[in-house]
Amino acid sequence: MPGKVVTITSGKGGVGKTTATANLGVALAMENLKVVVLDADIGLRNLDMMMGLENRIVYDLVDVVEGRCRLRQAMVRDKRLPELYLLPAAQTRDKTAVSPSNMIDICNQLRDTTDFIVVDSPAGIERGFQNAVAAADEVIIVTNPEVAAVRDADRVIGLLEAEEKGPIHLVINRVKPDMVRRGDMLDTSAVIELLAIDLIGIIPEDESIVGAANRGQPIVLSNNSQAGLAFRNIARRLLGHSVPFAPLEKPGLFQRFIKLVRSEGE
């Protein structure tokens, strides 16, 4: 079976696309699948840093497109897992160095030898985004429970639906259950209702993500992280397993009492 291209995008920057790409790639490779994580953020590459592979890069995506090396030569093998590779972006070029049809060609070549190609999209809705989604079989929208991220996610969903790309899945990242309980953060059900697409993951805010990025060790590789577990669950759901969602936002006893009093009054 040819490999599947899954693109991670968001519209807004800084919501956790690159972290999600690295972790989803590793999580899929942990399921004994052949995986390539592909950085489509030309000029601002960071997937190499998140993966801890930055000092092993020889060639990049643009070198492949411009014929300076073969595809295989540009792929950096991640030795932590049996079949995980990084195809890095160029750092010194811009988004126009690659076209959507280049991306389709490269992904088609990778499909023959790979189970999953996870593409990290740049922020925005311009050329870099168009490149990143060109070959996508499935798209994962990463958002945060805050107004700007949700609005931008909706815009991207609209663009993808207009191009009939999909299925489109939603990941809600950086959820802080305490803030949700206090009413200071949108709850996940509100975000799902607003965006009206299929939910595939909820990632709690996890301080250890910063340390993981510092070390170039995606959080899924550590055993006792809530966020790491959430990414493993996303990988399993992507593979078609039904994995229940963790009760991140179960209201406490007091909140339930308040809710009861409030609904009685209405």
Partner: peptide, 27 residues
């Protein structure tokens, strides 16, 4: 305030309403 029904909407409720409004216009 909540118990006596005089509560202010929480910021998350405000966010939800604002998003409902702005997304319908954006779409």
């Amino acid at each position: 305030n909540r118990l006596f029904g005089r509560r202010q909407p929480s910021s998350s409720e405000v966010a939800r309403e604002r998003l409902q409004f702005v997304l319908s216009y954006d779409r």
